[in-house]
Amino acid sequence: MTGPGGRSSRTVWSHTFSDAMVMTRRNLLHYVRVPSLVIFSTITPVMFVVLFGFVFGGAIPIPGIKYLDYLMPGIFVQTVAFGSIQTGIGLAEDQQRGIIDRLRSLPMARSAVLAGRTLSDCLRNLLVVVLMTVVGLLIGFRFHARPSAILGGLALVVLFAFAFSFISAAIGLSLDTVEAAQSAGFVWVFPLTFASSAFVPVLTMPGWLQAFAKVNPVTITVDAVRLLFQGQAAGTQVVRSVAWMALILVVFVPLSVWRYRRA
């Protein structure tokens, strides 16, 4: 019998890949069909860059660096961190509408829904990061590094977004409604992004907050990206940042898959 039980491992892999692509395409179609999704997921980052740049730009002197150059990596990371909430909302919405039930009753790869969601969100983040870079350059932000370091920094931002989207996925699949996923997102993203070196140096914070801010993956990633954009030696920070992302993925990928199976 040539049923699904008798498939070769090569067929299984090609199905796993094609299922993930089919789901990615479906999610991207949403962005094409619902212009408000595209507009708000691009206007907000542009607004962040412009407003934070002008509002804080003149107010916070940081020795040895132009504040806009200091701020921009922080804005990039903060924006994709908030953007990762969207992953959980998308999954909660599919669950609320019964779409996850239907998908789970199909002979498709069980990883495909998560892979499709995080991949399409990754592509959206790539677009957002490019857009923020262009707007940042327009208002006076400058790179002081070789192209390879710049690309490395941008890649780190996108990788960070990918890791964070799995935290969001695990939360979104554990909650019943879109509204809950939305509120829950802010609860964990807000403290992480603000109690970090995204906007001000950690040394200006009270001691207890410094202790948190110093180990915060947002601080570590922002510092790594900042050093890369400034053309300085970033090796240690990059390794620490990548280690954090690996840790997040090791914990939250299995957790999201487990939540998906129980959904």
């Binding site: 479906r26 179609l29 069909r33 619902v34 509408r97 019964g98 779409i99 039930d101 239907r102």
Partner: peptide
């Protein structure tokens, strides 16, 4: 299912 599980978009 009980709820029409189709993608509205």
């Amino acid at each position: 299912g009980q709820f029409a599980a189709v993608d509205e978009t």
